[in-house]
Nucleic acid binder design. Sequence first.
DNA 1: AGACGTACCTGACCGC
DNA 2: TGCGGTCAGGTACGTC
Length: 284
Amino acid sequence: MPELPEAETVRAQLEPQIVGQTIVQTWARLPRITLPDIENFVARTQNQKIIAAKRRGKQIYFPLESGDNLLVHLGMTGKLHVENGSEFDPESLHKHIHGVLLLSNQTRLVFTDARTFGKLAVSRELPFLTQMGPEPLDEDFPAELIAQKLKKKAVRIKAAILDQTLIAGLGNIYADEVCFLARIHPETRACDIPIEKLRELISFMRPTLERAIQARGATLKDGGYQDTFGNFGEFIPQIYGRTGDACDLCGTLIQRGVLGAGKTARSYHFCEKCQPAKWALAGR
DNA sequence: AGACGTACCTGACCGC
DNA sequence: TGCGGTCAGGTACGTC
C-alpha cells in the first residue's frame, strides 16, 4: 500500500510528465472522495497551470498557478498514471477511475482507486504541512526529540510510529520493518522501551525508506501498488507479509499478530526470537 | 489530552 | 458454480 516511498516514487515520476502543463479539463465522479465537492474541484483545477509536484508524508500535492493546490492521497489502492489522449468518454471509463485531468500536451492524468480510501482535493490551505510530524528523510529530522516523545507514550510502539502527527510517512509495511531491524516487539508499549533502543529504532527509518524509494516502493502479494508506469515496486520486506517464512536472521518462522481489535485491528509481523517480548505486554 | 474504538470500502481469497 | 464470511489498512472522528 502506498506509504512514503510509494508516494515519493509517484511524485518523482509525475514531476517531469505534468509540471508546466495546464489542466484543460477536469472530470470527477465520486463526491465522497472529492473535496470540498466535485463542482469546486472541477472549477478550481480547470485552466490552471501545474507549477510543481510535491509530497509531505504520504500526501502528494501540486501547487497551481492560482495559489490553489491539487491534492491526491492514494489511500490504500489509489494509483496515478499519465496516458496519451486529448479526449475521453466518461460513460465508458472503467469503474475504478474516479478522476481524469486532460492536460495541455494531449495527455491525461488519471486517478484510479478500487477501494476508494484515497482522496482528490483542491485547497488553498495546506494544514497538513504543520500538523504532520517531521519527515524522516529531512537532514534536520529531530531524532532525539522524537525519541523523547516516544518515551512518554503508553501506546504500543507500532501504533505510535504509525501516528502521522508524530512522524510522517510510515505505514504498516515500514513500521513493521523498522521494528524488526531494531529488534523490538511491535506490541511493546513505547514508554517501556529503553531510550537508546528508541534511538536505534528511529535511526533505521531513513535508510529503510531510502532503500524502498530506490526500489520504487513495495508491492505485496495483492499487487495493490503500482507506480505511474504500471510497474510493481521492487522493495522486498524482511518481515511484513512474510508470515510462515523463515526469518532472514535466525530462521525462526515469522509470525503474524494483531494490534487492537474489531474494525480497528491492524496486522503486524514479527520474529519471536529476534523481537522477544522482553518489555512487551507488561500491563496485560 | 491521550488512548482507544468505530466507520468507511470492495477485490481477493477460502471453505462449504 | 455459487455464496457468505473474512481479510486488507489510511485516516477522520467519537468517546472516555
